[in-house]
Nucleic acid binder design. Structure first.
Lengths: 342, 342
DNA sequence: GTCGATAATGTGAACGTGCACATTCGAAAC
DNA sequence: GTTTCGAATGTGCACGTTCACATTATCGAC
């Protein structure tokens, strides 16, 4: 407000800093990128000048000169899903801690064309790497066929590499859920699965199949859902007529909650006549009626790891070896001993 | 893979295009920014060259030269909230339709320092404008005091301007909710509010107070919650002892769902002894038991409008006049006539 | 045919940084 | 005191655009 005669409030550039510190602009650049051969005294002088002028590097210029943007792209198709959202928040935070920014791109539909277009767009923004949260198999096929020059990491799985273990995690989690039902005495367990193409859906189904066959039980052909509570509801109403199972493992909490609603409307009591377990442990899971048994995955940690991986790939260094994440079974009221049934 | 002798796979630049089209690089630039004075024939020649070379403008170079990034910053503190998430998706989509990209920044805590730092960071990325989804009053105080040179738009409200109407919307919605309860014969309605500092919390409370006083009823001192289902649960357990109200209007669905759980655990039957209505219409609201009456706000449209506003502000043009958005009352099973009580 | 005005195009210099390549400095070795 | 070599710093250009300012076509009016 107090107008002093400055006509050009143009922000300070690296050359202004250089002038003030009586060094060349290149020396300033070296200080900024902590080049080893800088005398401590010079470095201090430069840093002082930077502080005095409130200098901030121009990211566009840096990107132009170095063709690195310090930008990470997030390609997502599942926003709204609780897990995805938590992971995105974690990714964003982790990225910022490493000096990267995030550009998110939500896929409205996941046709190969749309995916290709989305990747092209991110590439156009010259992101240094991409994290994919659109865990559909076809997405990988498309991306794989694109011959990208920048690294791509997936939260769910990737061809080889330790990200694969993350997927393994979900298999484990699903196994936990089913084993919980079996431990309660159930032998006829139905799986309400996710859509065919989804990696997470496949992992969870694999866990279901593994657990069943490990217990020498025959699996029931799963129902394919679409992750939504609405689908769960309709499934519940339809399935109420069938009596070839006494427990359901739903591939996510939303479908489980809808399912319980459907059963309720159809006159099937949960858990008295039917046990239901979900997956994710969304915040409302503990507050619905009956409170929902489920499996908790640490999406936040998953997101963090994805970033670490991607940054390693960008730097060309070896990805760090992570220990496995252990999903946790949360037993609540929606599951009950089979013995108490009927 | 088929190695033809190209040693420099460097992407085509504007000068390459110019050469191929036998024009100057400036003419190409004019075509790209659709300058009026370009002969149609020339334009076609340039466009052909662009297609032939698969030329894509270098965004960093453009940003450097024009000091405009076509980047929008989203400053958010409420990720995970259903409404916020839907709005973000809509914002991202709308922004892309206008050729803008999105850089999201999630606030872990909303201390003035953190907010200032976040804005500084976005400014450092040279975003052309910021959309704020951290609807706390203090956020505006901080941002207002920063003297920013780029436009800032809020999804919730802003000092003057038509965004204010958006807030009005939420007042309307809250009024709808309370009027619904009053129409059912309730006279003693409690409000489970959001945190003090939140604009949305204030709007919804204002709607509550308006509706009560319009009906010549005295309001009960509201309870301050934190938006979470967990808080709702504890509130329900505590409030069960009180009998000076027969209905509760919760400031969001999550608290409402928790509240019903708390009442249930404390032996208060919803809706038989107590009516509960929420706000937001989250996807599970229709599947919990009892299904939750609530008010639906069109967050998607809200997000779209925020983008339109911001882009207008960036271009310096007048913001378009929007009609008011009308929140919709969704009556379900958690609310019931007072007459049927006791 | 000349003039002027506007349309259409061209020229050179920014923009702020990093890179490749000098150059200078300083101290140890002889 | 010269030589040598690495550490410390400087010089000029390139990155791919846009901007400000020429310059050249085009066309109607006289």
């Amino acid at each position: 407000m107090s107008g002093n005669g400055e006509t050009k409030p143009r922000p300070a550039s690296i050359r202004d800093v250089a002038r003030l510190a009586s060094v060349s602009h290149q020396t300033v650049s070296r200080v900024l990128n902590d080049h080893p051969s800088i005398r401590e005294e010079t470095r201090q002088r430069v840093l002082d000048a930077i502080r005095t002028l409130d200098y901030r590097p121009n990211l566009a210029a840096r990107a132009l000169a170095s063709s690195r943007t310090n930008l990470l792209g997030i390609l997502s198709a599942t926003v709204g899903e609780y897990g995805t959202t938590s992971a995105i928040v974690a990714i964003e935070q982790a990225a910022r801690e490493h000096g990267y920014s995030i550009s998110t791109l939500n896929l409205a539909d996941s046709t190969p064309e749309a995916i290709g277009e989305a990747v092209r767009l991110l590439q156009h923004e010259q992101v240094d790497g991409i994290i994919v949260l659109a865990p559909q198999l076809r997405v990988y096929n498309v991306i794989g066929g694109l011959g990208l020059s920048i690294p791509v990491v997936s939260l769910q799985t990737s061809a080889g590499g330790s990200a694969e273990r993350v997927a393994e995690d979900q298999v484990d989690g699903a196994r936990l859920a089913v084993e919980h039902l079996l431990a309660l005495g159930h032998t006829d367990v139905l799986h309400l699965a996710g859509p065919q193409d989804w990696i997470e859906a496949e992992s969870r189904m694999r866990g279901y199949l593994d657990a069943m066959s490990a217990a020498d039980l025959s699996a029931i052909p799963p129902i394919r859902g679409d992750w939504t509570a609405d689908f769960g509801y309709f499934a519940g109403r339809e399935l109420a007529a069938r009596r070839d199972f006494t427990a359901v493992f739903a591939a996510n909490d939303l479908m489980a909650i809808g399912l319980m609603h459907g059963f309720r409307d159809a006159g099937v009591a949960v858990p008295a006549e039917m046990s239901v377990i979900g997956f994710d442990d969304v915040p409302v899971a503990r507050h619905v009626w009956p409170t929902l048994s489920t499996v908790r995955i640490d999406f936040t940690e998953l997101g963090r790891r994805a970033v670490t991986h991607l940054l390693a790939a960008i730097d060309g260094s070896a990805p760090p070896a992570f220990g496995l994440l252990h999903p946790e079974l949360i037993a609540r009221d929606s599951t009950r001993r089979y013995a108490t049934h009927r």
